[in-house]
Design a protein around this nucleic acid. Structure first.
Length: 653
DNA sequence: GCGGATCAC
DNA sequence: GATGGTGATCCGC
């Protein structure tokens, strides 16, 4: 099965026994739920191919000619955007996480190793890659491919630190460089090079390295031979070697400068980087892969050379063309960029306008050279978790609560609110469902997000009846974001720090949350002794039913004294909790309460029976279920949302 | 605007 | 023991 096969498009994967590797992968995965889902996706992709082929047979010669005519116009337009004036560099750290672990534990250097666990590997070293072990592969398959494989637990703080050190070096050359991830970045060196050229050689930097500190990695960088520079000045690689000290310096060409940067990175972090140099990001990215590891490559900056370079390139090497696109293109006998260009009329007739433009630009070697990310603004923010199978509503709501909590914290930190909430659910069969709701106003309130998300979850559970909804992952995403200015933020941060020190660790671990809520309760109970009745109300989950006269009078009293009271209902037992809207610790308290609730005997919770949302529980449960059914209108109630629920309800009838 | 898919890292 | 998390974009309704 093609989907399951080894992805050998990345560096360090050439010349290995692909057949054997694929056989082992297949044996390890066959029959699993994951595998079955991959088969389902495969079938889907095949259907897509079938549709494509059907479309293909209907294409006439006249259509192709007309397409070429239109393509000529597109091509001319694209050609006007070709810009060879900027020096764009893509810097890519080699096997970043693995290299860091080896640096810090040299005994790993000659062993196949991977960072990650039996669940998932983040990356592997080059020895392991020879066995077919690679990033994004589950560890247990890695172990089958290479029984001697050593796992190292990820140490993200260390990776962030190394990344910071690398970035500091990049910033010396382009303060507006853009990082793609911890181990990858783009730079625009045009301005830097101008400056360097003017002052060269008087200002060139000289590095003094003790001979014994010169590693093989460093020597490789120093001994790379750059082609002669355009203006006849020899690339400057002065190595005055007396007995114990070696002095090295680099010239002023882009390639010299890149070697200098890689040299500095290596000297600072003991890690190696590869680099690609081109007139745009697409080309730079392809080039950084060319001489990996610890190497660099520059494509020549002329239109003809660029097109020549692209022609032999397999389509899969282009960022943006993945497994599926590669396959679709293969179906019309396109596997490299020469064919991509030669068959552009078919592309035009088979693919969308956006895709056609993209493919054409790729074939012509044209791409964006905009590096600065100063104006970058995120479009969405999300949080998702995989867990052991759950199917009870109560368990789902607990997960949901934690996700909303986490997400709200992130949003508050970034001072953003969102207007579109998306719930992502992945079943144990790896099927993904996404449901989104447009809100009337922007929010980053945990309560609001939780109320809406939990309603979506209830609805989805109903929708798949009489099947049980069995989940392995849940996620919450907010989009249509709005940024708020930092006035509020700083005040809020200060308040948070002042009053709720223990809250700052809230999202970090469940045990912290429990500790936090415990201390909260202690503090509050202490306060109770001298404070008014109103405060007492905020400290307990109400023991009363919603409609009881006792509660109503309490609420009335509360609203007399204070107009910022809010209410949150426990998803498990349906009791509710009244709190002041400026109070920040209610969530920890709620979490603690939910935990307690879940430890109660089964009969106390909403059951996992298929009827649990329609009020059929026994005894005590009856009243609660009924209550819940009436109560659960989302608090952000608005037209859009209202319509959403109505529509959902209709589909269930 | 929504939901499914694809893609990158 | 048992296939991740975050963000972006596109396509077809």
């Amino acid at each position: 099965m093609a989907r399951m096969g080894l992805n050998d498009s990345k560096a360090g994967m050439t010349g290995l026994d692909k057949q054997k590797i694929n056989r082992i992968i297949l044996e390890a995965t066959k029959g699993s739920r994951f595998y079955n889902n991959e088969m389902r996706k495969e079938k889907q992709a095949t259907e897509r191919v079938t549709r494509l082929k059907a479309k293909l047979t209907k294409i006439t010669q006249a259509q192709r000619l007309a397409a070429l005519d239109e393509l000529k116009r597109m091509e001319n337009q694209l050609e006007t955007t070709r810009d060879l004036s900027r020096f764009i560099v893509h810097v890519d750290m080699d096997a970043f996480y693995a290299a860091i672990e080896i640096r810090d534990n040299p005994s790993l250097a000659d062993k196949p190793m991977a960072v990650g666990g039996t669940g998932m590997m983040l990356t592997s070293n080059y020895i392991a890659r020879r066995y077919g072990v690679r990033a994004a592969m589950p560890g247990f398959i890695g172990k089958r491919l290479c029984p001697d494989l050593v796992f190292v637990k990820p140490n993200s703080a260390k990776y962030a630190q190394a990344s910071k050190e690398v970035r500091a070096i990049l910033a010396e050359y382009d303060p507006n460089f853009a990082s793609v991830s911890l181990d990858e970045a783009y730079m625009d060196l045009t301005e830097y090079l101008e400056g360097r050229k003017c002052t060269f050689p008087s200002s060139h930097v000289e590095f003094t390295v003790p001979q014994q500190d010169l590693t093989e990695d460093m020597l490789k960088i120093l001994n790379e031979v750059a082609p002669p520079t355009v203006d006849g000045v020899d690339s400057y690689n002065n190595c005055s070697s007396n007995s114990s000290i070696r002095k090295v310096s680099f010239g002023h060409t882009i390639e010299d400068v890149m070697r200098e940067i890689r040299f500095k990175i290596n000297r600072k972090t003991k890690l190696t980087a590869s680099a690609g140099i081109g007139p745009n990001k697409m080309l730079a990215k392809i080039c950084s892969d060319w001489k990996k590891p610890n190497g660099q490559f520059k494509v020549e900056f002329t239109r003809d050379k660029i097109i020549e370079f692209m022609r032999q390139l397999p389509t899969r090497k282009i960022s943006g063309i993945g497994k599926v696109s590669e396959r679709l293109l293969n179906e019309i006998e396109i596997s490299n960029c020469k064919e991509l260009y030669d068959k552009r009329d078919l592309i035009y007739l088979l693919f969308s306008n956006v895709s056609t433009k993209f493919f054409l630009a790729v074939a012509m070697g044209i791409g964006s050279n905009e590096v600065s990310s100063k104006n970058y603004q995120r479009k969405s923010i999300s949080c998702e978790r995989t867990f052991g199978e759950i199917s009870r509503l109560a368990d789902m709501l607990v997960k949901c609560q934690k996700l909303c909590d986490n997400l709200a914290n992130h949003m508050k930190k970034e001072n953003i609110t969102g207007r579109c909430l998306t719930v992502k659910l992945k079943t144990v069969a790896f099927e993904v469902k996404q449901r989104s709701v447009s809100l009337k106003h922007h929010t980053n309130s945990t309560t609001e997000m939780f109320n809406i998300a939990s309603e979506v979850i209830r609805s989805e559970r109903l929708a798949c009846q009489p099947e049980r909804l069995r989940l392995r992952l849940m996620g919450i995403k907010m989009s249509t974001l709005k940024r708020h200015e930092s006035d509020e933020k700083s005040i809020q941060d200060t308040l948070t720090r002042y009053f709720n020190k223990y809250d700052e660790n809230c999202s970090q671990s469940q045990s912290t949350i429990n500790e936090a809520s415990k201390s909260f309760i202690n503090i509050e109970q202490h306060k109770l002794d001298e404070k008014s009745k109103l405060d007492k109300v905020t400290c307990y989950f109400s023991k009363y039913d919603e409609n009881s006269s006792q509660l109503q009078s309490t609420m009335k009293e509360a609203s007399k004294n204070c107009d910022n009271m809010e209410k949150v209902t426990c998803p498990v037992c349906d009791q509710f909790y009244v709190y002041k809207s400026d109070e920040t610790s209610w969530l920890a308290l709620l979490n603690s309460h939910i935990d307690t609730c879940l430890q109660q005997p089964e009969t106390m919770k909403p059951s996992q029976s298929h009827n649990d949302s329609v009020g059929s529980s026994k005894g005590k449960g009856v009243k609660r279920r009924k209550l819940q059914h009436n109560r659960m209108q989302p608090t952000t109630g608005n037209k859009t949302l209202h319509n959403f629920w109505q529509a959902k309800d209709n589909t269930h009838q």
